[in-house]
Write a protein that binds this DNA or RNA. Structure first.
Lengths: 232, 232
DNA sequence: CAGTGGTCTAGACCACTGA
DNA sequence: CAGTGGTCTAGACCACTGA
């Protein structure tokens, strides 16, 4: 283990154990140099890493203090649905229900960025595992940002996979909630209207350009998201 | 902007724009030193940061290459429920329904780590915003890990807040899905059995010690989680 | 204005590993 | 075995800012 790793781990341990509490002052770089008998670059590497991880806050003259509290941000795995289903040993298929080029309508409830982007490709379909429907998807794609998508064949590949292969997003936002199945698509999932579904609304960007918005509704129990924090 | 930040940003931009694709070789540290006219420490700082972010893979002798694909991991905000409700301008309250010390039962469906931890404190309650119930919670806490919790008063503070103040976790895992309201607790949320709820099961650890498992069910529409990737 | 962190240099020795 | 990345040193100059 490198020395800067050891210094980082020791300070991290003192924070996680509570020996160092939020607001407590951490020894200065010069004090740590003396304590570990190393150069300033080495202690700086450790402290910069902890600062980047949100555990420390550094201010000139005032020194380094423990950050207000352990960050409540977790790392969320967002598996590609086709990959996830294949991992379970099931056959993935995207069943295309509807596809049309049109303008945004008020009832689409799109964000301004996409509503003003000009003509959209609208795609509706169902994700299946071993031909059992597990999720409904309604997607809007900006044709200004992705003109070549008019050539894509969504009977062979889901719009999400196509987009990821052709123009991977650089920024994304997911909103995760629960929703009762809508009468418009509940039958496609063999559900009664109102049945519990996991709802994911994802917006993506490529740089400044707004690419797509997709609303996915998963049959309760068919899919779950996992978020983790820590070494586990 | 520091030089190492500029180098990092330029290489990151080439990856995100597609100019550099997964598997492509990135110039060696010596080549980048010559290109930017700087020392090796400076380019190393940039490349190490990109490697830490998962965009690059570095191997001795073989050099640095672009990582297989943009990581599909997002940062999930996990707000403290009381804080989130206060942010909306509503009054938060935890309504305690049941509290008992007992052993794990098969129907609790606990993981081995907690089931074998000895006696548990079981707490059931409802989270309210302006006295409107928005979530049901069933929680199991290891008394071996947190003996002092027998003194806690959950009519004034939720078990989650108490735990966070007294023994913050160092590792956590959240499983997020949808569930139909259970007849046992649907009335507490003024729901019909089967109504759509967002389900979060959280396990926490403090070092090696298993602390708690909590199952929270949110009335659909009352709460959503947001996960982001990128600069936005 | 003194101490802090931010950055950078020009070296060095080393472990690793694929041509 | 030569080139790569991993680590570290012993300095340096600077901007910032709270005692």
């Amino acid at each position: 283990m490198a020395l800067h790793d050891r210094i980082r781990t020791e300070i991290e341990g003192q924070i996680l154990s509570g020996a160092l509490k939020p607001g407590d002052k951490v020894p200065s770089e010069h004090e740590l140099m003396a304590h570990y008998g190393c150069s300033r670059m080495t202690v700086s590497k450790a402290l910069t890493a902890l600062s980047g991880a949100g555990l420390l806050q550094r201010r000139k003259r005032a020194g380094t203090v423990v950050a207000p509290r352990p960050t409540e941000t977790m790392v969320l795995d967002v598996p590609d649905l086709a990959v996830e289903i294949a991992r379970r040993g099931q056959a993935y298929r995207f069943r295309l229900i509807a596809r049309e080029v049109r303008k945004a309508r008020p009832e689409d409830a799109l964000d301004d960025g996409l509503a003003r982007a000009g003509p959209l490709l609208f795609v509706r379909g169902v994700h299946c595992a071993d031909d059992v429907p597990i999720a409904h998807e309604a997607r809007y794609i900006s044709l200004a940002a992705v003109p070549e998508i008019v050539e894509a064949d969504f009977t062979r590949e889901s719009p999400g996979s196509w987009l990821l292969r052709h123009i991977p997003w650089t920024e994304a936002e997911n909103r995760i909630g629960a929703v009762g199945a809508d009468a418009a698509w509940a039958p496609l999932l063999n559900l009664e209207p109102g049945a519990a579904c996991l709802s994911i609304e994802r917006k993506t960007w490529r740089g400044e350009a707004r690419i797509t918005l997709v609303r996915q509704s998963f049959v309760a129990g068919s899919f779950e998201l996992v978020a983790r924090f820590g070494a586990a």
